[in-house]
Design a protein around this nucleic acid. Structure first.
Lengths: 333, 333
DNA sequence: GTGAAAGCGCTAACAC
DNA sequence: GTGTTAGCGCTTTCAC
């Protein structure tokens, strides 16, 4: 059994009180230099570690933040996590990462579990399937600091960090228009996501400003976010079954982009379709066929969201003014 | 401020004692049906969540496991994490993921922090730079359940899960020999890693069994694991500066494989070098030029390691018999 | 069937 | 400069 040593063990061994030990280890000025030294030496010698549960119970905070994302095995999120971790680490916070895998149920369980686990605050990018957010608004109402990043919930008033999805989609669409493509379809994420609407709006605006006819049925929602290749395959079949066929596609995510490329590889007829996709893959430059892409500032997003959260946690006074930080994406043609 | 409700709040509101509330919520048979119902209803209505710190303090366990890996933004590890999480989730454990980013110092801090944080057990794949493992053996000696996966430490006696690195490297090497390549170099990971030695041994054995001369200076160690492209570039420069030049390279990791491809792209002279690399990238099939690769069972590894850890944590009696589970890799030519 | 009280490991008044 | 004590939120033994 793992039986860590306690203050009491040290106190008994050195024949002093636990409070003396506690004070000595926290380098209180009340304690004499000799006692301090004695205590610290002994504590080190037995590899003493304070019990975090006791600490949190006392301090009513845990120096831990919870993170809920869709999947770590997704470049965008793993980069965001690195950003989150770097800031958390610098501020002596611990990071609890949980994955929703795109399931609303799982997200709910995770959020509840995290709140259970005495985290000091929550960082969340909501799952593709979330449209009921009472689990979050309840905790928010109770005062749990929450920061949304990437996929936000408009109606909950707190700090948020997002990509300028409208502009990213607008620029991406316009970029391929400039290249002469005019029949541009759009493979989108789940319809309930904030990012989906914004990207669609950017896409539409670019079409409009360039006098290109918008076709509603050329927006296909990938509800599983492209994890399921079949879903993307069907989208392609639908898009290319009509009389007028797209010559290019704006793709809303890494996963869908990748699945699209696979579908295109299998079908030579599709090989000259132009793809411009959102992607944070770190090997996108090596992928063949080459695609143009929009890269989001995932790492920075994680950093900023975490700074906001820590600010919220550590604020002495209630905060009522909440910023939404908007990050520009980069276009690679 | 986030002020969660406590048992006491419920007790006061319903005019019963905290012990009654506690028992009612844990569905004790001692409590009358009416009281139970009353308590549970009220608890739900105010969204009561028990305080995990108080629980851990009392129970002396936290239902959390700590994970130390190099980097989540690495396909192998993110897949392993998914495996870890799936098993942990099913067993009601929480997962605390930390990253060493290849730094020994960071690993040490993380391990200490995790041990601090009252985890019930630790899952670790040691960092590239770890050759002093006293931080681990000390905790292990104190009884903290530890399971190693992927990059293990031989001398610490506990459960381990690894890839059959010898066989994987052997098969990979032999596969390209069968294709007619004879001048095979090897880009390896950090020399102190267990996986490095095993893979080198497999590589050597394949050469030997196929009567190919082994050249010691054709093994190049990438101490930063290929994160730094410069490192790989220099390796190539060295390899191709000699009189006899390799016609193929066995590459020991995803990162190094990717960096190698980039180096080769920049240098047309290198374009017909055959690469066979360890890779768990989920887009390897789309990467150009096509490479052969060895894929490890990362997800399964995470699952197995977690099962072992939970077994270790929950064992009523001290375990003295430790298995090392060996997983076969798959070869894709 | 319910309550009072002790105690998990720690910190911080409050003694002295 | 050090010790005593109470209490963080919870469970559990022991009363009744």
């Amino acid at each position: 059994m793992f039986k860590p040593t306690t203050l009491k063990d040290i106190a008994n061994a050195l024949d002093v009180s636990t409070s003396t030990v506690s004070r000595a280890l926290r380098n209180s000025h009340e304690i004499s230099v000799e006692t301090k030294q004695k205590v610290i030496e002994y504590a080190n010698s037995i590899n003493y570690q304070s019990n975090p549960s006791a600490l949190s119970l006392k301090a009513k905070r845990s120096y831990a933040i919870g993170v809920v994302i869709e999947d770590v095995a997704n470049s965008f999120f793993s980069q965001a996590i690195n950003g989150i971790e770097s800031v958390a680490y610098d501020n002596n916070y611990f990071v609890n990462i949980t994955q929703s895998h795109g399931s609303y149920e799982r997200e709910k369980t995770n959020v509840t579990h995290l709140a259970h686990r005495s985290i000091d605050g929550l960082l969340i990018s909501v799952s593709s399937q979330t449209n009921d957010y009472s689990h979050l608004s309840l905790l928010h109402k109770q005062g749990l600091p929450i920061v949304f990043f990437d996929r936000i919930i408009e109606n909950i008033e707190t700090f948020k960090v997002v990509t300028n999805n409208f502009k990213a989609a607008y620029d991406a669409t316009e970029a391929i228009i400039k290249q002469g493509y005019t029949k541009i379809a759009h493979l989108a994420n789940s319809p309930q996501l904030s990012i989906t609407t914004e990207r669609i709006n950017g896409y539409k605006a670019a079409l409009k400003n360039n006098d290109i006819n918008f076709r509603k049925n050329w927006i296909i929602y990938c509800r599983e976010g492209g994890k399921n290749k079949q879903e993307v395959k069907q989208a392609f079949e639908y898009l290319f079954s009509g009389e007028i066929k797209p010559d290019s596609i704006l793709v809303a995510s890494d996963r869908i982009s990748i699945s699209s490329l696979r579908v295109m590889q299998e079908n030579p007829n599709l090989s000259n379709i132009k793809i411009i996709g959102f992607s944070n893959s770190d090997v996108i430059d090596l992928i063949h066929p080459k695609i143009s892409y929009v890269r989001q500032k995932a790492f920075e997003m994680g950093q900023i969201a975490t700074s906001m959260l820590i600010k919220l946690i550590e604020s002495k006074y209630p905060i009522h003014q909440f910023d939404t930080k908007i990050l520009e994406a980069e276009l690679f043609i």
